[in-house]
Simulated assay, not measured.
Amino acid sequence: MESLNLRLIHALQIDGRASLRRIASVLGVSEQVVARRYAALCESAGLRVIGRLNPRPVGQTVWALRVQSAPGASLGLARALAAREDTRWVQLASGATEIVCHLVAHRDGAQDAPVQLLDRLPGVTSITAQRVLRLFKGGPTTWGALTCALDQDQRDALAPAFAPPDARSPSVELTELDHVLLAALARDGRTTYAALAAEARCHESTVRRRIAHLRAAGALFFVLDIDERLLGSPTTTAIWMSVRPAHLAAVGAALAEHPEVAYAAATTGRTDLLASVLCPDDEYLYDYLTDRLGALPGIDAVETAPVVRTLKRVGTVGRHRNRPGGTRRG
């Protein structure tokens, strides 16, 4: 990918709502050039900025699911899961014999959310559900190492005036206005304040204040929806690890620093740590498992599952359904 495109992607990863004028100034090019490149990436790569809620402050619980299906039913089941509003990162793994995905549930119904899912989807034979306890890497930090195209001064110039979301942020009570704004930002995180105000039927200044409040409270952040293969790492592997409790925090923190790791979280269940690793080929993955992961103390067992197709990332399923390797969202 061209250098300017990578720098633009990195800029949006830092602050998805930064204006194109501000980005152009930091990159040292014209606003027109940035606008053309952004439009081209949206069209050719399905690039989108997505507004996301930080689960715990708004009363949500996240489950990491491994779904087994009847023979021949996995692709149809994965598509059904991808079409749901409460799922993200729906992937076929292990030679398409299982589905890995995340399920977001409101805290009031969190305990039986996986059971309800099993009841509503035909073809499911079993579900392994692990509740996410602590996020070490993911959300706004997913592509950090893959999009490291800007120097420190440029990163500082683009950094938003809001602290990164934290699971320990205080609770936030969402209003009716918030729900309208969040629905629009989930479709397009760069929707203008004027358009948001028109949809919410209120003053633009009210929309600005409310979004700033949600971001400052750690309840709202913005992520990129883009095919990770375009960033130079074509293969994804899900890794489940059994880690001794005394080492769990240290291993999670170490994984967060690995450039190969896009996601790492502590979970309940038979294994304690789930990670998603991006590697260019099998030899690289082997070296990562033996040299990098194997050097971390406290890991007793590792299970890997190559992802063969990604049907949904962070956004809703939309256009580019026939793109090789998985569906894209528009």
Rank of each mutant, 00 (worst) to 15 (best):
R107W: 03
R120F: 07
T310Q: 12
P57K: 07
I226M: 07
R319M: 07
T125G: 04
P160T: 07
W240A: 13
P160E: 02
D287A: 14
G315A: 15
A64Q: 08
L65F: 09
R244I: 12
D272Y: 00
G325L: 09
G144Y: 03
P122R: 09
P234Q: 07
H213K: 08
F162A: 04
L220M: 05
L311T: 09
R66K: 04
L81R: 03
G144T: 08
D287H: 11
A39R: 14
P114E: 10
P71I: 06
R88G: 01
A262H: 10
R21C: 11
L214T: 05
T310K: 08
G189V: 03
D151Y: 14
V100Q: 11
A219I: 12
P57W: 06
C279I: 00
G315I: 08
R313Y: 13
A184V: 00
L289I: 10
D282Q: 06
E283V: 02
A217N: 10
A163R: 12
S171G: 11
V29L: 09
L224F: 07
L81N: 02
T97C: 00
I50F: 03
A110G: 02
A184P: 00
S19F: 08
C148V: 01
V26D: 14
A64L: 06
S69W: 02
A184Q: 01
E204Q: 14
S276H: 08
R210H: 11
G28D: 13
R52T: 05
S169G: 09
G144M: 04
Q116R: 15
E260F: 07
V207Y: 11
R210A: 11
R210V: 10
